[in-house]
Amino acid sequence: MTSNSPATLAELREGEEACLDRIDLPEPEARRLMELGFLPGTRIAAARSSPFGDPRVFRVDGSEVALRRETAARLMVRESADIRGG
């Protein structure tokens, strides 16, 4: 695939995964996300979304956490990798 790498978690499509680079949110919220496993350097996979497209469930650090698009858009990622058949 030659598509542009997504820059934020919100741009990941179901089945895609990426590596979290940084969290662009104020300290308390960023901290809570980190406690839930969203640590820079962690691989995160996009799983199912709600039937209406938002929020989406992300697989991170062994568990599944739902985030709204507006929050996912503040989580910057690098180098995405397609999971085949996604």
């Binding site: 929020p55 469930v57 568990s63 739902a66 709204r68 507006e70």
Partner: peptide, 9 residues
């Protein structure tokens, strides 16, 4: 202001 929605499934 909206606080992020975080819910562990």
């Amino acid at each position: 202001a909206r606080t992020p929605f975080l819910l562990e499934m």
